[in-house]
């Protein structure tokens, strides 16, 4: 079902929502855009993609999972007010679908249950976006598509329908197109590239700063740390974001790290995003938002690297033998 709304009435609609719901929307704050609670529709920051993805709403950094007090342990179940996550792009919406497949704990599920996802069509994707290559699905409670003076609102669930009950229905449904893309990932079948030498160039540039994983909307990996409060009496188990680009990620007691080299960590990141997750759950984990490419301080472009390998598959025998020839000539 699709509904229709005049563009100028959007603010009114949000105002009616604010009375009943908590609204989380893109906000610009000290040079960086992120999803945050708003009190009026004017606070919404209109941008292509927020710098920090919406995962922080479901898994905020350092959220408490357990509390130990007086020899008793309480589980924090993540109960939140009814919330609307407003202004998600198609990739962000799909990212939430991806994370849904790997998070099973009470805390996450409770938060997820009480959140309505409101998406917005992407009108001006930039040169980093490659979402059309990543098998995105239609996943939303509500999805706004601008058409002339109006928004066409697609309804994806009952939760979403409730929000726009009073709006007039569109008689003839239209098909919502995919956002435009300038970048493309040519293949998802990258298993054969695992031992390709061309990864090296990317790995050499990697600082292991973990920006890619911190800003990735689907990177859900975490670490549970126990923190003792200053009053000593309460201890909290908290969840922190954790990155597979760090050596500590796979470190076990005794000091062995199972992904010791930067190469193996970098490859694990890329292959998990594109290949492994697809094998596990049937769809790629990467949703093509391009945040990892945007934030990388050394501008590593793994999408390009895969495309290169795709164009010229197999590892370079010609170069290899040429090099050897040179050495023997010496």
């Amino acid at each position: 079902m699709q509904k229709i709304l005049l563009k100028e009435n959007l603010n009114e609609l949000i105002k009616t929502w604010i009375k009943k719901y908590e609204i989380i929307a893109p906000v610009k704050e000290s040079k960086i855009s992120r999803f945050k609670k708003i009190n009026s529709p004017n606070e919404i920051y209109d941008c292509l993609l927020t710098d920090i993805p919406a995962k922080t709403h479901f898994m905020p950094e350092g959220e408490t999972l357990l509390e130990h007090k007086d020899k008793k342990t309480i589980e924090i179940e993540g109960k939140i007010k009814k919330t609307i996550l407003f202004g998600l792009r198609k990739c962000d919406l799909n990212a939430i679908q991806v994370v849904d497949k790997v998070m099973f704990d009470k805390n996450y599920i409770n938060k997820r249950k009480n959140t309505t996802l409101v998406g917005f069509f992407c009108e001006n994707p930039d040169k980093y976006c490659f979402c059309n290559s990543m098998e995105l699905q239609d996943f939303y409670d509500l999805y706004f598509y601008p058409q002339g003076k109006n928004y066409i609102i697609s309804i994806g669930s009952k939760k979403g329908e409730e929000l726009v009950k009073h709006l007039p229905e569109l008689k003839k449904e239209i098909k919502i197109p995919n956002p435009k893309n300038f970048k493309k990932l040519n293949t998802l079948d990258i298993e054969k590239y695992y031992r390709d030498e061309r990864w090296k160039a990317d790995v050499r540039k990697c600082l292991s700063c973990t920006a890619c994983t911190a800003y990735c909307p689907t990177c859900n990996c975490f670490d549970i740390k126990e923190l003792i409060n200053s009053d000593i009496k309460t201890i909290q188990s908290k969840r922190f974001h954790s990155s597979c680009m760090s050596k500590n990620f796979s470190l076990v007691a005794g000091g062995k790290s199972f992904r010791d080299s930067r190469t193996s960590r970098f490859k694990h990141f890329v292959f998990h995003k594109v290949l492994y997750f697809k094998k596990q759950k049937g769809r790629p984990m990467c949703i093509g938002c391009g945040r990892c490419l945007r934030v990388c301080p050394t501008k590593i472009d793994w999408v390009n690297t895969i495309n290169k390998m795709n164009r010229k598959p197999l590892f370079n025998f010609s170069r290899f033998s040429f090099k050897k020839l040179k050495e023997t000539n010496k």
């Binding site: 704990d105 859900n220 549970i224 596990q280």
Partner: peptide
């Protein structure tokens, strides 16, 4: 042996490829 923190496939630490 791997580092297993959650135990049910959420935290992602113990993955060996897929």
């Amino acid at each position: 042996e791997r580092r297993m923190e959650c135990g049910f496939g959420s935290c992602g630490r113990c993955q060996i490829q897929d």
